[in-house]
Amino acid sequence: MKTGFWQVTFAVLRKDMLAEMRSRELLSVMGLFALLSVIIFSFALELDREARETAISGVIWVTVAFASIIGLNRSMNSEREQGNFDALLLAPVDRSALFLGKFLGNFLVVLLVGLVLLPLGTLLYNITLIQPWVLLILVLGIFGLSSIGTLLAAMTAQTRARDALLSIAMLPIVLPVLLAAVRATTSIISNEPIENWITWPQILLVVDLIYLVLCFFTFGFVIEE
């Protein structure tokens, strides 16, 4: 007997979302980190308007990347501490479905943090970040971060260095995602014509898909015991 693929995916997703809704542990930690990070950057950089326009997208994306690392570590460590994966692996379920469930959970949580960051950045840096294209870039960028992040967090949760290792393993590999996202965001908020930056969302989309496919199929190798 085998549980259906999507059934498993949504079961894992629902479990994560329910746990998060009850404890609000992840969201509060990540949200607070994001707030602190944006404020500290604005102090550290002390920017005039023009410099802010070029720096804000970097600030936003660095914050999102580190917030997602914090979230991923928490989410995978709790999974491991409570032995959830070991239990799930005993059940006849598709491992890719587990990945998809975890990935969607992480994606939604980080996206929520990103969505909070946009009005925050708009407020603190006095630059309109709430634009449809910025939202699209945010979704695409966080999509890429979460897929690689979910896979690597599942790996590093099983190592000795754990949290520390995730950041050094993850940041270089998500660099193409961050690069494309930062460049696209900068161009959009400085109101450049669309033909100047439309390649960046396209590159982002392709990189996202490649990373998703790679992670989807290699996740099974990472959690087998």
């Binding site: 590159i203 392709v206 990189v207 898909l209 490649i210 496919v213 790679l214 199929f217 290699t218």
Partner: peptide, 16 residues
Amino acid sequence: WARWLVIGSMLLLLVL
């Protein structure tokens, strides 16, 4: 089936 998809996705990575 996974192995072919892994290989296929690697090729996709080269196409970009």
